[in-house]
Design a protein around this nucleic acid. Structure first.
Lengths: 195, 195
DNA sequence: ATGTCTCTATCGACTGATAGATAGGTAGCC
DNA sequence: GGCTACCTATCTATCAGTCGATAGAGACAT
């Protein structure tokens, strides 16, 4: 993937985390990256193309990250709670799928479909990791809601308060804790190269 | 409160439930109510005035509804889960504070403050009803996240799946169940008077 | 007469999107 | 080497539409 394409998606992701689908414009993205808005259209013809691509990338990345974290800690519930904790404590504070999911009724169909795909991935994975469908839905809801509350309060501590039971759940815990990782820190850090 | 003012707030509330702060315009609201956009400005000078008023009303109404429901069912957790279930099963499906809370970083300050006030009301009330602050945060998160998931999936059943434990929690349950109540059904239904 | 409410008309700013020019790189061919 | 023909990526300029907001006139009631 070209540098520009990645930089565009990074900028769009960041703004979608804060304001959802209506929270960014081609001109803003272009200014963030340092190009013109028509150049953004070259890489992503329409706004929904861009948003869908960002969500798809986020879904893949989250899935991979969960797999990786699960090698360090075998308790799936705690792994999910810790991974989303990284998002809550990142610069942008929010999962873009949560922001878009809350306003899903106002989303272009292709984007709504990608958001649905993200949450389905989460639930399927939780079930594959041994949880009942009901428990998977409950855990994912608690984590998602905790992100919303922490964001509304503007206080990351609210995330920990709401997920305390999830974070300490089982006692069979190895090392690897306290590793807040946000979007910016998570990837090879190609994004900032074009300031 | 005048008929027009109420009708405007009803229309704004409905659209905010679907698309958040950026999800409605003065012209759309005006068309919903059957007036001109400049008349909307007469009652609510700015967009943030309107949004803040809608959230404040929602907060008050929710607080009152919880009090009323608590007389029929003494288990606070189940009462909250049931009350928000009414929102999930209503026409608009979403709590406007959840939609705005998810995109809180993009909100005008007065609106963000009102949203914060809603969630604070919820938590304070839960604590006053006997829950620990941690448990209150967890319950509210689960409920809020369940709304987001159900909305993203476009499937109200997801709400029940995610809140099953909350809904049946304690065994000390009187009658009064299965009473899905949405915004439209909840109020004196003055809104549609001006079609 | 005053106050309440709605109207018409308009402002400047911003939106997503498109057309068309331009520059640089690369491959194929003489 | 030199010439040609694309391909990629960016630019300038512009479009029609929507946005929140305001000014000022009219209608109606008290």
């Amino acid at each position: 993937m070209s540098d520009a394409k990645t930089a565009i998606m990074d900028a769009a992701e960041r703004r979608m985390q804060q304001g959802g689908f209506g929270g960014f414009s081609f001109r803003e993205i272009a200014a963030d990256v340092g190009i013109k808005s028509s150049s953004v259209h070259y890489h992503f013809p329409t706004k929904e193309d861009l948003a869908a691509a960002v969500i798809r990338r986020w879904t893949e990345y989250t899935s991979d990250l969960i797999d990786k974290e699960l090698e360090k800690d075998r308790d799936p519930v705690r792994v999910w709670a810790k991974t989303f904790r990284g998002t809550a404590f990142s610069d942008a504070h929010m999962c873009p799928c949560t922001v878009l999911g809350a306003a899903a009724q106002d989303l272009p169909d292709p984007v709504a479909k990608e958001v649905k795909g993200f949450f389905r991935m989460c639930q399927d994975k939780l079930v594959a990791q041994g949880l009942s469908p009901g428990k998977a839905a409950e855990v994912l809801s608690t984590i998602t809601g905790a992100l919303v509350l922490a964001n509304a309060f503007g206080d990351t501590a609210e995330y920990d308060r709401a997920t305390r039971d999830l974070l300490r759940k089982s006692a069979a815990a190895p090392a690897a804790r306290n590793d807040p990782r946000g979007t910016a820190a998570k990837r090879p850090a190609k994004a900032g190269a074009r300031d």
